[in-house]
Amino acid sequence: MARQRSKSDLPTKICPVCGLSFTWRKKWANCWDDVKYCSERCRRRKSQAQTDE
């Protein structure tokens, strides 16, 4: 059986809306390159982040 990776070994990204870092999740395994937002709430608020810049 394979050893588990520690959470600190997983890749992370910064959410452009809230600015918090979020960690890779198994459900994002096939689409990690496309993931931009940490949550559905931030994905819905993406227009606010673009107008603030």
Score class of each variant (00 low, 15 high):
1 M>P: 08
2 A>Y: 09
2 A>L: 10
3 R>A: 09
3 R>T: 00
3 R>N: 07
3 R>F: 04
3 R>S: 00
4 Q>E: 15
4 Q>F: 14
4 Q>N: 12
4 Q>C: 14
4 Q>H: 13
4 Q>W: 15
5 R>H: 12
5 R>K: 10
5 R>P: 06
5 R>L: 13
6 S>N: 06
6 S>Q: 10
7 K>D: 08
8 S>E: 10
8 S>D: 14
8 S>G: 12
8 S>T: 05
9 D>P: 10
9 D>I: 07
9 D>K: 12
10 L>T: 11
10 L>Q: 08
10 L>H: 14
11 P>N: 09
11 P>V: 06
12 T>G: 04
12 T>K: 07
13 K>H: 07
13 K>F: 11
13 K>V: 10
13 K>L: 13
13 K>I: 12
14 I>E: 09
15 C>E: 09
15 C>V: 08
15 C>I: 00
15 C>T: 04
15 C>F: 11
16 P>E: 13
17 V>R: 06
17 V>P: 00
17 V>T: 07
17 V>C: 10
18 C>G: 00
18 C>L: 10
18 C>K: 05
18 C>F: 03
18 C>Q: 07
18 C>T: 10
19 G>K: 06
19 G>Y: 01
19 G>H: 04
19 G>A: 14
20 L>K: 08
20 L>I: 00
20 L>Y: 02
20 L>E: 10
21 S>V: 14
22 F>C: 02
22 F>H: 02
22 F>W: 07
22 F>N: 05
23 T>Q: 03
23 T>C: 05
23 T>A: 11
23 T>V: 09
23 T>Y: 01
23 T>W: 05
23 T>K: 12
24 W>A: 05
25 R>T: 15
25 R>S: 07
25 R>P: 09
25 R>G: 10
25 R>H: 15
25 R>E: 09
26 K>E: 07
27 K>V: 03
27 K>A: 13
27 K>F: 03
27 K>W: 01
28 W>N: 03
28 W>V: 02
28 W>P: 04
28 W>R: 03
28 W>E: 03
29 A>Y: 08
29 A>W: 01
29 A>L: 06
30 N>G: 12
30 N>R: 08
30 N>T: 04
31 C>D: 14
31 C>H: 12
32 W>Q: 00
32 W>D: 04
33 D>C: 02
33 D>G: 05
33 D>W: 06
34 D>I: 04
34 D>A: 13
34 D>N: 09
35 V>R: 00
35 V>W: 00
36 K>R: 09
37 Y>W: 11
37 Y>R: 07
37 Y>K: 08
38 C>N: 01
38 C>W: 01
39 S>N: 06
39 S>E: 03
39 S>H: 04
40 E>P: 08
41 R>M: 12
42 C>H: 01
42 C>F: 02
42 C>L: 04
42 C>G: 03
42 C>D: 03
43 R>N: 15
43 R>I: 02
44 R>Y: 02
45 R>D: 12
45 R>Y: 11
45 R>K: 15
45 R>A: 15
45 R>I: 02
45 R>N: 13
46 K>R: 14
46 K>W: 04
46 K>G: 10
47 S>A: 15
48 Q>V: 02
48 Q>L: 06
49 A>E: 07
49 A>G: 08
50 Q>V: 10
50 Q>R: 13
50 Q>M: 06
50 Q>N: 13
50 Q>L: 14
50 Q>W: 14
51 T>H: 07
51 T>N: 10
52 D>F: 12
52 D>Y: 08
52 D>L: 11
52 D>R: 14
52 D>A: 13
53 E>H: 15
53 E>Q: 14
